[in-house]
């Protein structure tokens, strides 16, 4: 459902490259982890999927759609098909946990009935029913990330893109977040995640793409963390 066709991203007139001739595809319902050192190009890769960044060469497809040919006015519609989770959570600070999740649905044009029904479900999926009316500043790192995941899934996207979702979390919160992502994947949503965390990869036992200096150097179906 995601297809990278010989994608390169060059800076400084081609003297430095964030991605070099990257080709791979992700099938529906897969759980793909992307690992690599800092600067290996993992985040650039994810930015291509959510149309935050453009390739210098090559194309990125979402199903049959060339992502970087979507007109700017249609981008919001495209982004609604993707749930995003970030290392720094990216919650709206002046909205409560409930409102953060509801905002994604409002932006999507969902009805009030759907919002009243789905937001509590999403909150209970990430086990935060009792924190619905807390602001992000009143939540721990793990709780914030769970709100972010709830927001990412509440519109039932086709795919979840998670950039270092456990990067700022302690081991227990990391474990919880990974379990939630796994649960979401089991329910049928494709997940693409970047990580540094060896324990996470070994615990998951799913496909692992290893990157180094902008290239894919390994692609294992049931990978181990090997750098």
């Amino acid at each position: 459902m995601i297809y990278f066709d010989n994608v390169s991203k060059l800076y400084n007139d081609g003297r430095s490259a964030a991605l070099q001739e990257v080709t791979f595809q992700v099938a529906p319902k897969e759980f793909v982890s992307i690992v690599g050192h800092s600067g290996a190009g993992k985040t650039t890769l994810l930015k291509m999927i959510i149309a935050e960044d453009k390739p210098s060469h090559g194309q990125v497809f979402f199903e049959s759609l060339d992502i970087h040919k979507i007109p700017r006015t249609k981008l919001p519609h495209y982004r609604r098909k993707i749930g995003t989770v970030f290392q720094d959570f990216k919650l709206l600070p002046h909205k409560t946990a409930y409102e953060n999740i509801a905002f994604a649905m409002e932006a999507n044009g969902r009805t009030d009935e759907e919002i009243h029904e789905n937001v509590p479900q999403a909150l209970s999926l990430v086990d935060l029913d009792d924190k619905a009316w807390n602001f992000p500043s009143e939540l721990s790192g793990g709780e914030k990330q769970r709100v972010a995941i709830a927001r990412a899934i509440v519109n039932q996207p086709d795919i979840i893109v998670a950039d270092e979702p456990t990067g700022n979390l302690d081991p227990i919160a990391t474990y919880e977040v990974v379990q939630i992502l796994r649960k979401i994947n089991d329910l049928g949503t494709t997940v693409i995640m970047t990580t540094h965390n060896k324990g996470v990869i070994d615990e998951l036992g799913r496909r692992v793409i290893t990157m180094d200096e902008g290239r894919i150097v390994r692609d294992d179906a049931t990978g181990k963390y090997a750098l």
């Binding site: 935050e52 919001p76 993707i82 995003t84 709206l92 905002f103 932006a107």
Partner: peptide
């Protein structure tokens, strides 16, 4: 500005 970029990532239209 950070909030605005988050809203965009969540798929909110410019008018919204």
């Amino acid at each position: 500005r950070e909030e605005i970029s988050i809203m965009r990532l969540v798929g909110a239209s410019n008018m919204f």
